[in-house]
């Protein structure tokens, strides 16, 4: 089963990535460069959502592409190269956060600190944007991650499953649970607004 999802990473992009994957596998440097150009901004943004540090995000994305070239011969033609890259970036980000959290007293503290940083960094013009950000931040960690990968990174269920090391069914369950929770928050918000 291959679930395709409407998204800004559309089908032609996916097809192009598949084509590039084959060429990278056979050591085509031009294809590798093109893939880099294609994914660079996306992956940098993705790394930033974890580490909130531009230099660190830069290094992490570079690392991920080094890994891709070193392991190019082992690229699985049946799996998405996009999720390979997201996975490589995500693993490095999580390692970084883990290392950092040792420096701080506890990981919980560190997490709160990053949340605060994030709140300062991005302020949405639309008031609902901030509410959604809060609601999404309060979701259980795995649900939140699956939802964000699907919603903001445009990954399909198979890619998310591969990345998070869970089944596509579980991916779906996580996102459905997240949506149900967001729906509750949104309804409550609308109710409060009507009362005011």
């Amino acid at each position: 089963m291959y679930i395709r999802q409407a998204g800004f990473m559309n089908q032609t992009t996916d097809e192009l990535i598949e084509l590039l994957a084959g060429k990278i596998r056979s050591s085509d440097k031009g294809a590798y460069d093109d893939f880099f150009r294609m994914m660079y901004a996306k992956l940098s943004g993705f790394a930033m959502t974890y580490v909130h540090d531009q230099n660190l995000a830069y290094d992490i994305v570079q690392d991920a592409f080094v890994i891709l070239w070193q392991r190019r011969a082992g690229i699985d033609p049946d799996k998405s190269l996009k999720s390979f890259m997201y996975k490589a970036v995500r693993n490095r980000c999580l390692n970084e956060l883990r290392n950092r959290s040792k420096e701080v007293v506890s990981s919980e503290l560190a997490e709160n600190q990053y949340k605060n940083d994030e709140a300062i960094e991005i302020e949405s013009e639309h008031p609902l944007g901030n509410h959604f950000r809060e609601w999404i931040a309060s979701l259980p960690e795995r649900q939140k991650e699956a939802f964000e990968l699907s919603r903001y990174e445009g990954l399909n269920h198979e890619e998310i499953a591969d990345l998070m090391n869970i089944s596509t069914k579980t991916v779906n369950n996580h996102i459905v649970a997240a949506m149900a929770q967001l729906r509750k928050c949104y309804q409550q918000y609308k109710q409060n607004n009507q009362q005011n």
Partner: peptide, 16 residues
């Protein structure tokens, strides 16, 4: 609708 609205809190993709 919620799916669409949640797009409001998307992180901006950095511009290079």
């Amino acid at each position: 609708e919620i799916w669409r609205l949640s797009g409001l809190s998307a992180q901006k993709v950095p511009e290079y």
